[in-house]
């Protein structure tokens, strides 16, 4: 294939990757930004989103689109509820100590993953796309649904931006992020904000998963990859920064698609992971917001 079309395809794939990644990483970033904790179980909320999407879609036998759009609402709500409960039951009791939280969320990772294995089973199961439309370009074909995912992610992003910057809810969250003690002094119920933010972060991951699951299948081990990628994006973009996350997700998504044109994808992943680790070492303040405690 000639280079031009090759690049076009890599770009389309990169945009798709970036779209899903932005939503997932945004959830992680939001949680870190406001609560100052790293949620290692984030990838499992993504996986749960996909699994519940399968569950909902398989209950609505009529048209795939019905099942899909119901799942797009129901699945994030269930995932959010689970996240909310685990925040109340576990993270709150740890008093959001950063290191204990990492250990606890690793535990949650296994609990969620293995419970899914017990109930949903070890198979990869497909969810039908709401519509199936193949766009034939002169050099190759591309799925219309993939483009829909990109658009849907952009819509979601705008919505998140609106909530964060134009609503009272966003103001409260920003205030908590900026200075926990002062916010509390002004009567902001910090704990409720934390629980809400944790649930919202998980819901963003779940939405990303519902969007992608008609392209990839729902599988109990699907959470690890998005987790590592989200870490990379969040570190590169600067935690808690919406714009940074979007830019970094675009960068990682596109470069992943384009670099693997020239190098082996394993090598590409190796190099990008190494670079990000070095960024974190040599520019920790800049990338971790104010300062990691």
């Amino acid at each position: 294939m000639a280079f031009g079309p090759f690049l076009l395809l890599a770009t389309l794939e990169g945009l798709l990757q970036a779209a899903v990644l932005t939503l997932t990483a945004l959830g992680l970033s939001l949680v870190f930004g406001v609560m100052r904790v790293v949620n290692v179980a984030h990838g499992e909320f993504y996986m749960l989103g996909a699994v519940f999407a399968w569950w909902v879609a398989s209950m609505f036998g009529m048209h795939p689109a019905v099942g899909f759009f119901v799942a797009l609402i129901v699945s994030p709500i269930i995932v959010g509820a689970i996240a909310f409960a685990s925040e109340r039951l576990i993270l709150k009791r740890l008093n959001y100590d950063p290191e204990s939280t990492i250990v606890a969320t690793i535990g949650m990772l296994y609990i969620i993953q293995q419970t899914t294995l017990l109930t949903y089973g070890p198979d990869a199961r497909p969810v039908p796309a709401p519509f199936y439309y193949r766009i034939q370009l002169p050099w190759f074909g591309y799925s219309g649904y993939n483009l829909f995912v990109i658009v849907a992610a952009i819509v979601m992003l705008v919505a998140v931006w609106f909530v964060l910057s134009r609503t009272r809810l966003g103001l409260i969250m920003r205030a908590t992020q900026f200075d926990r003690e002062t916010a509390q002094a002004f009567g902001i119920p910090i704990e409720r904000v934390y629980a809400f933010v944790f649930a919202a972060g998980a819901m963003l991951a779940a939405i990303a998963a519902v969007l992608i699951v008609p392209i990839r299948q729902a599988h109990y081990l699907m959470g690890l990859d998005p987790l590592l990628l989200s870490f990379i994006v969040v570190i590169l973009g600067g935690l808690g920064s919406l714009r940074g996350t979007v830019v970094a997700a675009l960068l990682i998504g596109l470069s992943d698609g384009i670099i693997s044109v020239f190098f082996s994808p394993t090598l590409a992943k190796m190099i990008s992971t190494l670079l990000v680790a070095l960024v974190l070492v040599f520019k920790p303040e800049g990338l971790f917001g104010a300062k990691a405690r």
């Binding site: 950063p98 290191e99 974190l280 070492v281 971790f288 990691a292």
Partner: peptide, 8 residues
């Protein structure tokens, strides 16, 4: 690095 950054 220290703390959370060291873990990651």
């Amino acid at each position: 690095t220290t703390g959370v950054a060291f873990m990651i």
